[in-house]
Design a protein around this nucleic acid. Structure first.
Lengths: 209, 209
DNA sequence: GTCTATAATCAGATAGAC
DNA sequence: GTCTATCTGATTATAGAC
């Protein structure tokens, strides 16, 4: 096998394929917004099609089912999460990184871009679990965040008495925390204040220190 | 107005009415379990009827819509909550009472008896807001728990820097905290351990103290 | 009030022309 | 691949006999 590749035919990212990819991106964007706005059960495929501006039958040429639409949106989200983790500077402490991740998550939610899925729906779960890109992304994110949790516990900044998995779940849960919406509905706080409040209750607790 | 009531005709809690009430209680129990298991959208009226063991048309003689079924279940839950608040001994500190309420909430959830409603559905929200028994119960519970929060903040046991309303929401949110189910799925902890873990992260936070 | 049977509607998915 | 038109099944709700 030669060290240098043999000359190839010009990579033909054919115009058609670019258009196809662009359309699928548009679909995923729409699904993402609708999932964030109304959740999986209340989102209809008709709405997705209308939102993208194509016919429903065309949608089904790209994605074989409603569940696959949601899975594609979740895989996209995992890609965004991975990119965000990559963007965290190396000199940040593990605790700072964890706080950064939670802050990013809540910013996404307040921006209406955090898709929400029911944890009970079994057919949806099956589709998600068989979606390689999503599962790979989820595993990678969990491994890296899990590593920071253990490092923070070793440093004593995160309570070492807590199981790391419980800490991980607690951080993940901020992605669907209703406190954010409730506080926003109250109209008494800015988005930044809401995020700081929830960050405080999450890391410092309700009790006085 | 006489101090002692005038003699009344024997209160005719007719047998029929008793049966009616018993049936409605059975309906509400079923709705409660189904709402806890699958949520409002996934729960079907057919399932409710089958679970109670009556025909669907009979169900609609008792409750005019699916939304009203859910509202009745929520009103029942509020009644239970009020009874629990009443059961808390007077010599408990405000903080102990708050912890007790959260523990009770999570016990209910782990027992599969905590109904879960989507916060987005507008017709459901309308039905809930016009349901007097539910709203009265919710107000009463919020007032009393809110009072304990302020008392605890005055004592310095709950962080006085937090808006009381944010504390209230944070406590309420334990009723739909996915961390409980996730930890149970892991199979590494008993229900008691799970509750203690979440109580700890809620009141003490993730950081070391 | 309870039932069987049936409306009326909506949503996920597909057929088939272009 | 995209479209219009349609199928299929599920779901909320009701009619009408008893």
């Amino acid at each position: 096998m030669p060290v240098t590749d043999a000359p190839k035919a010009p990579v033909k990212v054919s115009f058609k394929k670019q258009m196809l990819q662009a359309r699928e991106d548009a679909i995923i964007r729409s699904v993402n917004l609708l999932l964030a706005e109304k959740g999986f059960e209340a989102m209809t495929v008709d709405e997705v099609a209308a939102s993208v501006g194509i016919a429903k039958a065309s949608l089904y040429k790209h994605f074989p089912s409603k569940e696959d639409l949601a899975a594609a949106a979740m895989a996209h989200l995992m890609g965004q999460a991975q990119a965000f983790l990559n963007s965290l500077p190396d000199d940040m402490s593990p605790l700072q990184k964890l706080r950064g991740v939670v802050r990013w998550t809540m910013l996404l939610k307040l921006a209406g871009e955090m898709p929400s899925l029911p944890s009970q729906n079994s057919t949806l779960r099956a589709t998600l679990m068989s979606h390689k890109a999503y599962m790979d992304g989820l595993m990678d994110v969990s491994d890296r965040v899990g590593g920071w949790i253990e490092a923070a516990q070793a440093q004593g900044t995160i309570n070492p008495a807590l199981p790391a998995i419980a800490v991980l779940y607690t951080l993940y849960a901020r992605a669907c925390d209703p406190v954010l919406e409730f506080l926003r509905m109250g109209g008494q706080h800015t988005d930044e204040q809401i995020i700081d409040l929830v960050l405080s209750t999450c890391f410092d607790g309700l009790n006085s220190r």
